[in-house]
């Protein structure tokens, strides 16, 4: 992967209110986003994701910290930098409801220094991809929530931005469109760098190159989905074993430090066993015992942990588990 840094945020801090009512929304958040990567911001409601995104876009001024986009200090060069950024903001109206989709795309492209002619082809291409081509001449206010979201996505993409910041882009989308957007996001990586935030953990896990988990304004974890999995979850396997005698091997398994039997079902000639390993290499000790007692593993399943559980562990302070 190209290591060129597109966006760098250092030690961002933001407190809203003063005195007893003061709320620290963001507390020392730092991260860097590399070129052509999909970087995800993840966190529960009120974690500080949207405030962080708004600070990146200079819609909220940080109390402390610095932001660099394309190597330039924000907000000094904001106007120039905005030509290269496509955005989708959560909760706000991304478009004018009394204008058609086409008019909205042209309007916001114009405000980003692009002519209607420059964005026309791209707009039509994305509209076709998102199956909204027949809605281009309709007023946005008359469209469904999902269609409005699609129109906003087209608006963000039509200017061919080098950096896309998409806050809750799956909001209001149906299942089929979600899959299409998922595919689209992966393809966009070829032409753009993406910062995304979403509550959909499955989506984030599938599309992101790196994930930053924020909770109560602080970074609690950062890494690829598999790195986060390794940090938080123990290796967990289900074995189906063929045995010749009584299950005496179980006593020896229990004696290995760092291996826990979390499930056992014994039959006449087969056992089903679920083992949790503190360290993945402990599996060799287990195989030694299997050999010693002539137990043959006929099936091994890696159980892992659902990403939701990993996320929950981090948010609930499970990083030190």
């Amino acid at each position: 992967m190209d290591d060129k840094i597109v966006l760098k945020a250092e030690n961002l801090e933001k407190t809203f209110g003063a005195g007893k009512k003061a709320v620290k929304a963001v507390d020392g958040v730092s991260f860097a986003v590399r070129e052509k990567e999909i970087f995800a911001l993840l966190g529960p409601n009120g974690a500080g994701k949207t405030t962080t995104v708004k600070m990146l876009l200079n819609l909220v001024s940080p109390d402390k910290g610095s932001i660099q986009i394309f190597g330039e200090d924000m907000p000094k060069v904001q106007k120039e930098v905005m030509k290269e950024i496509g955005t989708l903001l959560e909760g706000s109206r991304n478009l004018y409801w009394h204008m058609t989709v086409r008019e909205n795309v042209y309007y916001f492209a114009n405000l980003r220094g692009k002519s209607a002619r420059e964005v026309k082809d791209d707009m039509e291409m994305w509209a076709e991809r998102l199956r909204i081509q027949d809605k281009l001449e309709e007023e946005v206010g008359k469209l469904s929530r999902g269609m409005q979201q699609k129109a906003a996505i087209i608006c963000a993409l039509a200017t061919k931005p080098k950096l896309l910041i998409l806050d809750e882009l799956l909001l209001g989308l149906d299942i089929i469109t979600r899959f299409e957007v998922e595919k689209l996001v992966k393809e966009l990586k070829e032409i753009s760098t993406l910062i995304i935030s979403s509550h959909d953990l499955r989506f984030i896990e599938k599309v992101s190159d790196r994930i930053l988990i924020i909770n109560k304004g602080k970074v609690v974890a950062e890494g690829t989905a598999s790195e986060l999995r390794h940090k938080i979850s123990y290796a967990k396997y289900r074995f189906t074993l063929r045995k010749n005698e009584e299950s005496r091997y179980l006593e020896e398994l229990k004696s290995i430090r760092g291996v826990e039997i979390s499930f056992y079902e014994g039959n006449i000639d087969t056992d089903i066993l679920e083992l949790t390993f503190e360290k993945p290499e402990l599996i060799y000790d287990v195989f030694d015992i299997f050999r010693k007692f002539s137990v043959i593993p006929v099936e091994i399943d890696n159980l892992g942990e659902p990403f939701e559980e990993i996320f929950k562990s981090f948010v609930e302070g499970g990083e030190n588990k």
């Binding site: 030509k83 950024i85 706000s92 991304n94 478009l95």
Partner: peptide, 14 residues
């Protein structure tokens, strides 16, 4: 109040 004001701030003009 509508939310489009923030989007106008994301322009390359003031």
């Amino acid at each position: 109040m509508q939310g489009t004001f923030e989007h106008l701030h994301l322009s390359s003009v003031s």
